[in-house]
């Protein structure tokens, strides 16, 4: 039982990281319908920014956090303007390919700048894990779960209630109609990217605290997992993405803990496929029939 609880908590820890990155992913994915393969790499950029600021420039942690978020936002908005905006009317697969291109570009630029060797992330907190009986919960896990939940609630409120949020949803439904209704589409999409990338910046920080190693390819795996969470949660549904993020984390952890560490990836993907077979529009997505 203790073992099970410990593994469950391990799963929640990784799940919270997936969920956090998936939130930013879903913002962009839900509103622009872009499979942003570069999202994980934006996170990588944020991590390097943080390392350079904290280790090389000696900037204190809160300042570094804000600064690296700003770096992420700047990168995200610039990338959107240069690489995605011109392709808004092209088939979706075109922007998918540019996203792959941007992803490679960021990874290889980082490799040229910082080499392929991973760099250690400096320790930020030295708070001992919470222990209840035989169960221990690390501070980072608690923090990540909390931050992910808060951000999810906040973002959901923002998207549902605020003026900008409504504009975002309008753009998502029908870009042309939104424009006619006086929504500044370019501004709205830029804002979406800015928020998505700021979330990647926060995600980068928590990721690095949990796994203190920064490398050029570090964004690939979280990016992929976030993509899966965003689709499986139901396109554009923030709580769905977060839920799937947690489910993936827990499924991975429990599979590794009690089934097989070798086959865990296969088992987890298998679970995801089965979920999709029963919920073909995602876990929280409503079944949508094409109107005939």
């Amino acid at each position: 039982m203790v073992l099970f609880l410990n593994q469950l908590i391990n799963g929640l820890g990784t799940g919270a990281i997936y969920a956090l990155i998936a939130l930013g992913y879903t913002m962009v994915y839900g509103i622009v319908k872009l499979i942003n393969f570069a999202h994980g790499d934006i996170m990588m950029v944020g991590s390097y920014a943080a390392v350079v600021l904290m280790v090389n420039a000696g900037v204190p942690f809160p300042v570094a956090l804000v600064a690296s978020m700003l770096v992420c936002v700047a990168f995200g908005v610039a990338i959107e303007r240069v690489a995605y905006k011109p392709l808004r009317d092209a088939p979706r697969i075109c922007s998918l390919i540019t996203a792959i291109g941007v992803s490679y570009l960021l990874q290889n630029s980082a490799q040229l700048l910082f080499s392929a060797n991973p760099r250690p992330f400096p320790p930020v907190f030295s708070i001992p894990p919470l222990r209840i009986g035989g169960v221990s919960i690390s501070f980072v896990t608690l923090l990540t779960v909390l931050v992910a939940a808060l951000l999810m609630v906040g973002l959901n409120l923002f998207v549902m209630k605020s003026r900008t949020g409504k504009a975002m949803r309008a753009v998502s439904e029908d870009m042309g109609a939104a424009k006619l209704m006086g929504v500044n589409v370019n501004m709205t999409i830029s804002t979406t990217f800015a928020i998505g990338c700021a979330l990647a910046g926060i995600g980068a920080f928590l990721y690095c605290i949990a796994y203190p190693s920064v490398a050029p390819t570090m964004g690939a795996m979280p990016g992929l997992k976030a993509f899966i969470a965003a689709v499986l949660g139901g396109i554009g549904i923030l709580p769905g993405a977060m839920l799937v993020g947690f489910i993936m984390g827990v499924a991975e952890s429990l599979t590794k803990g009690f089934v097989s560490t070798q086959l865990s990836d296969a088992v987890v993907y298998g679970i995801l496929i089965v979920v999709l077979l029963f919920k073909p529009s995602g876990l929280l997505g409503r079944a949508q029939r094409e109107k005939v």
Partner: peptide, 28 residues
């Protein structure tokens, strides 16, 4: 066969998942 019910990005995820499952199984 899952394509019976799925399309678009949902189907894309299935192909991705199957590709990875094949790889993991072959490796073991």
């Amino acid at each position: 066969v899952p394509a019976l019910r799925l399309k678009g990005d949902y189907l894309a995820i299935i192909t991705l998942g199957f590709g990875e499952i094949i790889r993991v199984i072959l490796q073991n």
